[in-house]
Design a binder for these strands. Sequence first.
RNA 1: GCGGGUGUGGCGGAAUGGUAGACGCCGGGGACUUAAAAUCCCCUGAUCUUUUGAUCGUGCGGGUUCGAGUCCCGCCACCCGCACCA
Length: 836
Amino acid sequence: MTDTRFDPSRADGRWQRAWSEAGTFTADSSSSKPKSFILEMFPYPSGRIHMGHVRNYTMGDVLARYKKMRGHEVLHPMGWDAFGMPAENAAMEKKVHPGSWTRANIAAMKAQLQRIGFALDWTREFATCDPEYYGHEQSLFIDMYESGLVYRRSSEVNWDPVDMTVLANEQVIDGKGWRSGAEVEKRKLDQWFLKITDFAGELLDGLGELKDWPEKVRLMQENWIGKSTGLEFSFELSNGDKLPVYSTRPDTIFGASFCAVAADHPLAQQVGASDPAAAGFIEECKRGGTTAAELETAEKLGFDTGVTAKHPFTGEPLPVFIANFVLMDYGTGAVMGVPGHDQRDFEFATKYDLPIARVVASDVSEADAPFEGEAATGDGVIVNSDFLNGMSVEAAKAEVNARAEAGGWGNGTTVWRLRDWGVSRQRYWGTPIPFIHCDTCGVVPVPKDQLPVTLPDDVDFETPGNPLERHPTWSKTACPKCGGDARRETDTLDTFTNSSWYFLRFASQPVDAPFDAEDVAKWMPVEHYIGGIEHAILHLLYARFWTRALKHIGKIDVAEPFAALFTQGMVTHETYSLGDGSWLSPAEVRKDGADWIRIEDGAPVTAGRVVKMSKSKKNVVDPDGIIDEYGADAVRWFMLSDSPPERDLPWSEAGIEGCGRFVQRLWRLFESVDPDASGEDKALARKAHQAVVAVAEDIEALSFNKAVARIYELTGAAEKAPPSESRNFAIRTILHLVSPMMPHLAEEIWLRQNESGLIADAAWPVHDPAMLVEDEVTIAVQHKGKLRDTLTAPKGAAKEDLEALALASEKVQRSLDGAEIRKVIVVPDRLVNIVT
RNA sequence: GCGGGUGUGGCGGAAUGGUAGACGCCGGGGACUUAAAAUCCCCUGAUCUUUUGAUCGUGCGGGUUCGAGUCCCGCCACCCGCACCA
């Protein structure tokens, strides 16, 4: 029975069921095999799987299947990052409960993932909105609270007036909410915080050990944590108070000509209270835009408070300004202004006509060198600075720090840019914060035997704001301590907490605890974590923090959750637009000669830039339709072909067609095996052995595009070769090599070749090292640095023989044209270069 | 402004300092077919040349080297991240 075509519509489902029934990809924690935890960032159940998911999960899938073939016990799980605002928005717009909306999306997306044939352990599937999951999260949150890692304080927060919620600093982009895009306001609220700043140093130092993380991500986190060292010291003010400031350049202290405080600094508030002009200026500062463009051009503005600060060394009085460029939430919210050596201070001093002194110069003789329109921020020697004169910048810093500490007016300190993580959200669809407010006992954690604190189902989304707060009964409870009337916390946790420990729950999921430390130890850390670069800071930093925090409180013994991180590129597509600027989807247009037109009415269409697939630009291609047409294997193959995985992958109709053709090409190749063929084809056999090694190396380096190219090469060679035992061997090898990438086709062939069991359980082919070595090599012959001829020589030929062979070449002789040979360079097995 | 990345045919991209363009896509020509689809074969960086072949060619300008896409110095362009962080 010879079928001329592979029919994915029949084969795909059959094998997906076979794997599921056999439990092929169920991970066994008690296995004695080496363990591999392969993880892709779990999806938010938005409704549909998109091409970005497909690419992400295909990469992880190839790794997982490959690791299994190499004899590893593989954990490759999948779940749902199911809390979040889209569900509440859907509730408001479509009048469905966030829970049912989310569950329906999960069901649809799971079916889509299963159609692609991913080697996932579905027995460990969970959604973060499962009460079992968030109940354990509540329990961990209480543990952290009891260890002092959770605290509550009133704080000015970023309030999103459209989503009616608080946003973390990280969720404010250019002064606007990351989701709503609305201008963020400042509000004071009682908030829950996680003490990520306790771990700032650890999180920074830990980056050094993450050798298999992209340099880019490590740098982004490093900048985000933002360590700086300097001197914190106090000025004595003319009004009797002290003004603490922070500076990284105490060496320039003799160049200080003013002080400046933030608009919301206590001193500014104090002055503003009695001086309407000051109050007006403070208001103006708060109104000032915070977008990049506005900051770029914003003028440095100040308001002289009339208060002066006494210079700690010279005793000179320095004017104290309220200034629009000083930030309250960094350092002490106040700075000393050194115009000569800080660009902002320079601009400020120029505007307000303050002295600009030089205290750092390239050389002592340059002590009076004028400024050239900007501050001198470079290195040099200290000048015009009394006892610091002649010192290097570094030595002067140390000297000033020492004198400040000895004098008791300052201390060398480290300042971090990282802020504590505000996790309170005034939303419904999230993990309820498991605390109770009692008028007598204060804030009391919910006793663990009462967890989970579950969300009520009967909620109203008609009015904006937090449905939990409006619920008639939910928040009413008894205090666990005194039994009196009390109120439940109505804030829920930021969804980033859900994704901060989910990998631990994948590794181990007992009923009565978040995880079992022993099982966690078996699987963690994640060997390969794959996902988008957009999580470089938030999710990845929070997950690192939770892991360290859980280690700190003795729950686990792992410090870093992800041994290797891979950030894959996006799937992109050309964009199409009409003359009026409206976007068209790829399905609505077609090519007409050299131009694009709308199919419907032939209207001319402009093909625009190739950008990330997005609903707004309509340049999306739905995976389901493509799978219907070409089958799962063709889609998987496309995702791995051509573009290196870290770069963007441009989707193209021609590309997927090519992949579909290749699936059929392989089918025909496998069908062409003549089991009775005999004879050796050493060159082909060698190619097969080489491919086994090369494809393995490529997969391990996640260079899937190269692995794909190697398989194409071997396939081409096998197609052309006459029947032989070697050819059958090469074809069998191809079958194994493609099986992680095209698992359905591979199973189908495996069955047709009467092999037993599933190829998914088969081992990676073993290569013969002796067969990797060529016995003949092609030698390039160069003259004047250019290629003149190539010749064939036995592998390992002597230098003299190669030289003689090269000189014997007619082409080489013609190029030499009788010139005198000065030197001959011979690289064994590679080339001969003749220098004249 | 600071930090990082990328730049190679018509396109996606290969290439331990050693034959630039593997592999795929597009395109051209041919075979098979009544025809089409499918499939197979050949060609496909540029210029010159009938061919043999020659010259040029990895963003730009220098340099190191017998030999540079690869190393060094100096630029340019584009993309990404951060940004009044004292």
